[in-house]
Every structure is written in C-alpha cells, then in structure tokens.
C-alpha cells in the first residue's frame, strides 16, 4: 500500500518499520498519536510531497512517483542526502564497528581471520568517509551554486567556468561504488569465515550490513536518478543561455 497524506503516521510505521531511520532524517519524533502524515509534516515543517515521494520509493521499488522527484529544489534533496550521510557516519558505522570489535573480544586466542575482517571493515569505513567528505565539500556546494545561478537566471562567466572545470557529469563518472566492499564483507561472513562462536552477534552484523546496503542503494538512486540529471539539465540551460548573449 502506498503512503498517502491522509493515512496515520503511526500506521505508516506499523506497515514499514524500515522507514524509522528515514523519518528520523526528517527530524520527526515518535509519539505521533493519531496524526496523519500531512499533519505531522506540517508540525515539523517538512515538505509533504517530498516526504511522500521519498518514503514510497524507499519501501517500494516499483513505486510510480506522483510528483516528479526532480521537480523538488536541489537544496531539499541535498539536505536530505546530508542527513543520510550523518546517519551512516554517526550511527551505522560506529554501531557496526563496535559489533566487529566485539567479535575479536570473544575469540580468546589471537584470531587471524577476525583480524582480517576488522582491517577490511576499517578500509571500508575510510572509503565511505572519504566518499561522503568529497560529496559534502565539493559536490553539494557546486550543485547549490548551479541552482542559485539557474533560479536567478544568471549565466555569469564565473559559473560557466565552474561548469567547464567540473561538471556534474564528472561527478557521475567519479561516483565510485562504495557498495562493493560492503557486498564482499557480507559474502565473506556468509560464505567463507569459519563459524563464529557468538551466533547472535554474527546474525546482528549481517542484518545491519543488509540494512545498510538497502539504505545506501536508495541513497545512490536519489543521486544518480534525480540529482545528477536535474543538475545536468540546469548546466545545459545555463551554458546555452551564456552562449546566446
């Protein structure tokens, strides 16, 4: 069932608990009472249409957007992406890290395979941090810049120079795949690691890896299918605009 403005927010969570971290990203607190999605969004000053599109596409791969996601301002999309980043860096990665540290604590003898997994996860964490930093320090300011120039219809020489030195397509090409190591880590634990003493701990690690992967995929989809094409279109119009003058 699709999420619509008039269903109760509590029911949204009952139907799809995987949306809990998404709701947090919109700064929405629990304790909804019987308020509807629309009312809650109003209370928290959240763009209702954006909320509807983000949550529906998060839970349903076949969801057909009611409003084109690319009709939303870049700023709204970037803010959401940033919130997602801090969810990864401040919550998920430390959580997974503590699980993996726990893995080595429970094996009394020095265990090479656990050590390897720990190093591997460390590498993954570094990669993800680097990826996120680049987006926040370079890509996000750039796309906001483009949007500003576009809405003010100011195709200045400065902005044209920026587009020519680093366009969103360069970002799309560089947009490295941070999911690869995550995929490997899952397979190493599922297929190759000697059975772990603490079964519950291994299960928890895997569940978290699967959840993180799902979230990262939704995140990448928003970047690749919405943000990049939208900004590319604005760049094109700005360049044309500049040529005509």
């Amino acid at each position: 069932m699709n999420i619509t403005p008039d269903i109760k927010m509590a029911d949204v969570i009952h139907l799809n608990y995987s949306l809990l971290p998404v709701i947090t990203r919109f700064n929405i607190d629990l304790g909804f009472g019987d308020k509807t999605v629309k009312e809650i969004c109003k209370d928290y000053d959240v763009n209702l249409d954006f909320f509807i599109e983000i949550t529906n596409s998060y839970i349903d791969d076949d969801y057909i957007p009611q409003k084109e996601l690319n009709s939303f301002p870049v700023k709204l999309i970037v803010d959401y992406l940033k919130k997602t980043h801090s969810y990864y860096l401040d919550e998920k990665i430390p959580e997974l890290n503590s699980f993996i540290v726990e893995l080595s604590v429970i094996s009394e003898v020095k265990n090479d395979s656990i050590q390897l997994v720990q190093n591997f996860f460390g590498e993954y964490r570094e990669e993800l941090i680097h990826h996120i930093e680049r987006e926040e320090n370079k890509v996000h300011p750039y796309v906001l810049n483009i949007e500003e120039a576009f809405t003010q219809n100011k195709a200045s020489a400065d902005i044209v120079k920026k587009i020519k030195s680093y366009s969103i397509n360069d970002f799309a090409i560089e947009h490295d795949n941070v999911e690869e190591k995550l995929y490997d880590l899952k397979n190493i634990i599922i297929k190759y690691l000697p059975p772990c003493k603490d079964k519950a701990l291994c299960t928890r690690i895997l569940m978290e890896l699967f959840r993180l992967e799902k979230d990262l995929n939704a995140h990448a989809l928003l970047e690749d299918k919405v943000l990049i094409p939208k900004v590319a279109k604005m760049e094109e119009l700005l360049l044309n605009n500049f040529m005509e003058r």
Binding site: S113, F120, E180, K181, D184, N187, I188
Partner: peptide
C-alpha cells in the same frame, strides 16, 4: 565464482583458504 569484488576481499579469501 567467489562473489568477491575487491582486492582486499580477495585477499581475505586467500588467507582463509
């Protein structure tokens, strides 16, 4: 065949085996 894409991942497989 292994379902492992990265070099570090392949290294772990090689050590484990």
């Amino acid at each position: 065949k292994l379902g492992i894409k990265t070099i570090s991942g392949l290294t772990i497989y090689a050590v484990l085996n």
